[in-house]
Computed example of a mutant assay.
Amino acid sequence: PPPAPEGVRPEPLADDDRALAWLTAEHAVLLAVVDTAAATGQERLACQLAWSLEPFFDRRGHWHDALTVQRTALDAARRLAEPALEARGLRGLGRIEGRLGLHHLSLPRLERALELFRRMGDDTGRAHTHRSLGWESEQRGDLPGALRHNQLALALFRALGDRAAQAGVLNSVGWYHALLGDHRQALTHCFEALTMLQDLGDRYGQAATWDSIGYAHQHLGRHPHALLAYRNALTLLRALGAPYTEADILARVGDTHHAMGDEDSARAAWTDALRLLRALDHPDAGRVGARLSGPDGQADVC
């Protein structure tokens, strides 16, 4: 952003917790500021604000708000007629459309973003877009494609020397190895990622990686190891305030208890997951609710 106007001073935010508290308190104001910036000819500022809010909206599950600001940002980027901004706007909107299950919209946006980044020689943009396309591939059931996109992202981040991004993608590569059934390879990648993320102090990345480690152990039949890894992930996520990811992991905790024959613990975990997903109005609620469905086909969770 440009320098602050005279008389305006930035408010220091010492750590993640204070930043999250500030964002929560200013949530409605920030939405209005994005709209105001776009409406008063400050297109670049509207884009910067919208993209800066992505991690907050994603972790808190505010996807409908995110959809609104990302549409505003893409419109603003197109008015500026700068390919770099348009590519970033396409990726931002495509990612959130994918979160909401609008894959017929998200996939072509992400593919167009990748093409623009490629033309500009922007390897950082390409790498992040490959990650998003990997997630899209997973949603369509194309797990080899998901792994391939993340391997391409990993190679780009290594060449760029971006250690933080590299650590996150190492976990994604491990996750897709696990989904493809290569659980030992998954653990190798994920433990490498976990060490890097701990060195970097990235708690959210650590939580995602503990989830992947839990999934790999779960499918190797090491259920106590899986539950321990999931517990580590949930402890971190609850401190960070990430209800969707928490729900996703709780569903797997329920699956693990079910595999161990502990139906009471399984139903308790699924019930907690379903409540979180219903509060977010997320389509995954139906998938989790099906695990709890009784003979009449109605999930017995209020």
Rank of each mutant, 00 (worst) to 15 (best):
A4N: 14
A14V: 04
D15H: 01
R18K: 03
L23H: 10
E26I: 01
H27A: 09
A28P: 03
L30C: 02
V33D: 02
V33H: 01
V34S: 03
V34C: 06
G41T: 10
E43R: 14
E43L: 11
C47Q: 08
W51I: 02
W51E: 07
L53H: 09
E54A: 15
G61E: 06
G61V: 13
W63P: 00
D65L: 07
V69A: 03
V69Q: 01
T72Y: 01
L74F: 12
D75C: 05
R78Y: 05
L80M: 15
A81M: 09
A84M: 06
A87V: 14
A87Q: 07
R88P: 03
G89D: 05
L90C: 10
L90S: 08
G92Y: 08
L93F: 10
E97L: 14
S106P: 04
R109E: 11
L110I: 04
E111Y: 00
R112N: 01
A113H: 05
E115P: 08
L116E: 04
R119M: 09
A127E: 06
H128L: 09
H130P: 09
S132V: 02
G134C: 13
W135C: 05
S137P: 00
S137I: 04
Q139P: 00
G141Y: 05
L143M: 15
P144V: 13
G145A: 12
A146N: 11
A146V: 08
N150W: 02
Q151V: 14
L154P: 00
D162M: 13
R163N: 07
L170P: 08
N171P: 00
N171S: 15
S172Y: 07
G174I: 05
W175D: 04
W175S: 09
W175V: 07
H177Y: 14
L179D: 07
T188D: 13
M196Q: 08
D199K: 08
D199V: 10
L200D: 12
L200E: 11
G205S: 06
A208I: 02
A208Q: 11
I213R: 13
I213P: 04
H217A: 10
R222T: 09
P224D: 14
H225L: 12
L228W: 12
A229S: 15
Y230L: 13
N232R: 15
A233D: 06
L236R: 01
L236V: 02
L236W: 05
A239V: 02
P243E: 01
E246G: 14
A247P: 06
G254E: 00
D255M: 07
T256S: 10
A259Y: 03
M260K: 09
G261E: 05
E263V: 12
D264R: 09
W270C: 00
T271Q: 11
A273S: 15
L276S: 02
R278D: 07
D281P: 00
D284H: 14
D284I: 06
R291N: 12
L292R: 08
L292G: 01
S293T: 10
S293G: 09
D296G: 15
A299G: 11
D300G: 07
V301D: 05
C302D: 15
